[in-house]
Design a protein around this nucleic acid. Structure first.
Lengths: 142, 142
DNA sequence: CTTACTGCAAACTCTTTGCAGTGCG
DNA sequence: CGCACTGCAAAGAGTTTGCAGTAAG
């Protein structure tokens, strides 16, 4: 699974005369291991466990690269920093406005209706985001 | 319509020992006249037509105030600045990734399914955003 | 008169770019 | 070896805060 993505990245690098480096390998494979959404700073901390000298900018640029070749999506929940998520793991999000917990959901019926809405506007969908904000079950009790 | 919102704002101000000022009145009423999404800078330009000395910060703080009392929503499409939109004019958005045009849509069936998803997760929805990115009909032709 | 508001300027936060040195191919 | 990549440091973009003067109640 991760292997095929690393492979995909390598092909992209080759095709564009870009180089494979140990930083990119490390950052990408760490990112692919991450299931959840990750912010640049978090991923930086993570990769620094193996390579303490890696810079913020390299992580940043590698994520942009992954985004470019379609292996990552960049999201902007609420305010503040970007979060990156693995492409292919598409899902929508429920975000708790109290504790910040992010729960994922997927509903094919919603996806279908979405397609229909697009058709009716003659709009060609490339991607979408659907986020629900509210209180998660744990926070409702308090 | 706008009147009742201004009224609502005034009540909120009173209840919280805050003051009614000509800047707030102007900013709020200009905001309520704006149907579409507005960024701070745009609203600033608009109100400066009547009151050239109004500062960015005042517009900013007034928008936060409106958000606080539920009269505005703050959104973060893509990257960059925030956009504020009138509460009550709920709709979802289709954003053209070429020309940036924002089209609004609403689909009750989607809203219903959304409610159901929340129920199944025991999640209490407060608000949501649903955005579709792609090419608008005009840009598809090019 | 007292207390909140305004508007300037400055501080912050996160992102993006410039550049000299490093290392892949 | 040449050219792309790294990592630092500095520049940007947008937002947020501190403060002295001003005005609402």
């Amino acid at each position: 699974m991760n292997e095929s993505r690393i492979q995909q990245l390598r092909e992209y690098l080759n095709q564009n005369g870009m180089k494979q480096t140990k930083q990119r390998d490390l950052i990408a494979s760490t990112f692919f291991k991450t299931k959840k959404h990750v912010r640049i700073e978090e991923l930086l901390q993570e990769v620094r466990k193996s390579e303490p000298n890696i810079g913020y900018v390299t992580v940043y640029r590698t994520l942009l690269l992954l985004k470019e070749c379609g292996l990552a999506h960049q999201r902007h929940f609420g305010e503040g920093q970007s979060l990156f998520e693995n492409a292919g793991e598409h899902h929508d999000h429920m975000i708790c406005i109290k504790c910040g917990a992010i729960t994922e959901f997927e509903d094919d019926r919603i996806e279908d209706l979405q397609e229909k809405v697009c058709e009716s506007f003659n709009f060609k969908m490339v991607s979408h985001r659907h986020e629900i904000y509210g209180a998660c079950s744990r926070c409702q009790k308090e």
